[in-house]
């Protein structure tokens, strides 16, 4: 996730309904050991959290809050270290432009 984006999902001021809050989106398996619920929210496969550490139930707003505050934290770090971030894709595009031969004038 780009640090200036925010994860999708209800905003912090949305009305609180218990059942709704405790029903995360249906999980989608993304690897042997992980699944997603909200976009960008990854979770350990619950089958791996059955013996020593049990998975906790978070209301949706809290899951999203954690994700959002992480994004805030990373954005803060960028501006703390430099006035501006240059993206790699801009640099790649510049290299591409420079390496494209300019057609001869007609």
């Amino acid at each position: 996730m780009r640090t200036d984006d925010q994860p999708t999902g209800p905003s912090a001021s949305a009305p609180y309904r218990f059942a709704e809050q405790h029903t995360p989106p249906a999980p989608v398996r993304v690897s042997e050991v992980a699944q997603t619920t909200f976009e960008h929210v990854y979770e350990v496969d619950p089958r791996l959290m059955e013996v020593h550490v049990l998975q906790q139930v978070f209301p949706n707003w809290d899951t999203l809050r954690i994700m959002r505050s992480r994004a805030d934290h990373l954005a803060w770090m960028h501006t703390h270290f430099a006035e501006k971030v240059i993206t790699g894709s801009e640099i790649l595009a510049e290299i591409e432009r420079e390496s494209t031969p300019v057609p001869p004038p007609l």
């Binding site: 780009r2 640090t3 770090m77 894709s89």
Partner: peptide, 17 residues
Amino acid sequence: RYLGDEISEGDWAARHD
């Protein structure tokens, strides 16, 4: 292979902490 702007920016910012 460039991994894209999201990872590049997010992961570097996380390295300070």
